[in-house]
């Protein structure tokens, strides 16, 4: 008897993925198509990033995908000189938080943004990114 297929698409997320099975696996398919997506509750209209399969505000699971579009403001950032196991090849890299108003996005700043140009409050956008090891993530670039 064939085993049922396990949908573990999320294992493609990030330099090292720590979990592979989630109801938000479609996020990976959108990333493959260069789209960074949030989810939105169809019942109460709340938008979520990171994407959620369920709305804690109205307890609905009636969710749709919406694109993270436009510009966010840089809330803060930090450039790491040391990383966890599996991230050695990426060092140094900067993690950051962008505020889009309705939601915030946590991620990395693109390698080609020079450190001198990074200022808290600056506008940036979120773009899908392919990593050298074939994995996928998204990065922040200058708006």
């Amino acid at each position: 008897m064939a085993k049922p297929d396990i949908d573990d698409r999320f294992k493609k997320f990030g330099t090292v993925s720590f979990t592979s099975i989630t109801k938000t696996n479609d996020f990976i398919d959108y990333l493959e198509k260069d789209q960074v997506m949030a989810t939105k509750c169809k019942d109460c209209g709340e938008t979520f990033f990171p994407p959620r399969a369920d709305c804690y505000k109205c307890l609905s699971s009636n969710i749709e995908w919406v694109e993270v579009k436009g510009k966010g403001k840089l809330v803060s950032f930090s450039k790491l000189q040391y990383g966890p196991i599996g991230f050695e090849e990426d060092l140094p890299y900067s993690i950051a938080l962008l505020n889009y108003g309705d939601y915030q996005v946590f991620g990395r700043i693109a390698k080609d943004v020079s450190e001198a140009d990074i200022k808290i409050g600056m506008e940036m956008k979120t773009v899908a990114n392919k990593l050298p090891n074939g994995q996928l993530n998204y990065v922040f670039t200058k708006a």
Partner: peptide
């Protein structure tokens, strides 16, 4: 958050560093 943050290579010092960066600014 192991699903949405850890895949970027985060560590405790980096998160407090983000707080420090925002605070100093």
């Amino acid at each position: 958050d192991i699903q949405w943050e850890s895949p970027f290579g985060t560590m405790m010092p980096a998160y407090y560093a983000m707080h420090a960066q925002a605070y100093l600014d």
